[in-house]
């Protein structure tokens, strides 16, 4: 079962201002030198310069690899679809970090692992995650899954009509995630 809510990260919109990272650190009181969210600057040069910013955090998969590999059962998937990490159980073996295909598990400054909670405490109060509420370009949007996927479809059609190939990661049955990524497909 996947949650009726979802978040879409639209990589084509990100301007690399790092607001989301700092909002995440503030909201979740993350210690200095650690973080659950990263934004990577990518540059590709083929016929012309293609530079984009690639945000990276836990995608809350429907079938998470991290849950499967954790030797102490510190990670579980809740009924509402969130992948939750229990820091007290975590032994810092970091196997999940190596396994996660999305780079969502982060090594923290205390040697343990940390990950995005999708600001569960805010969701329970009916609010959106901290990174979503600050994002100045709506590269991060939270809402009802169906609505978001429909809107992303329109946006994609628009982008494709301009000759930009895009792909929505996490929408298909096999690889469902709660945090979906709208990514540009950079051709060779």
């Amino acid at each position: 079962m996947i949650s009726q809510y979802a978040m879409i990260v639209d990589v084509s919109r990100c301007i690399g201002c790092n607001s989301c990272i700092v909002a995440c650190k503030q909201e979740n009181g993350i210690t200095k030198g650690s973080g659950w969210l990263q934004v990577w600057r990518k540059e590709l040069f083929r016929n012309h310069l293609n530079r984009y910013y690639n945000p990276q955090s836990c995608r809350h998969c429907a079938e998470p690899d991290c849950v499967a590999v954790c030797p102490v059962g510190a990670i579980h998937r809740s009924e509402d679809g969130l992948v939750i990490h229990n820091v007290e159980r975590c032994i810092g073996c970091q196997v999940c970090v190596a396994t996660c295909p999305h780079g969502g598990m982060k090594i923290m400054s205390n040697g343990k692992v940390g990950k995005c909670s999708l600001c569960n405490h805010l969701l329970q109060r009916g609010k959106e995650p901290a990174c979503v509420s600050v994002c100045p370009v709506d590269a991060r949007v939270f809402g009802e899954r169906e609505v978001l996927i429909r809107e992303a479809g329109l946006h994609m059609t628009n982008l494709i009509s301009k000759g930009i190939s895009v792909h929505l990661e996490g929408a298909e049955e096999k690889e469902q995630t709660m945090v979906l990524y709208l990514v540009k497909v950079v051709g060779l």
Binding site: Q26, E27, N28, G29, I30, T31, S34, W36, V87, G92, M108, S109, N110, G111, K112, G114, S117, C119, H121, R125
Partner: peptide, 16 residues
């Protein structure tokens, strides 16, 4: 026990 790892490195803000 790795002493460093005893610390909790995240603490969500309280509701205000």
């Amino acid at each position: 026990v790795r002493p460093q790892s005893l610390g909790i490195n995240s603490k969500p803000l309280k509701q205000d």
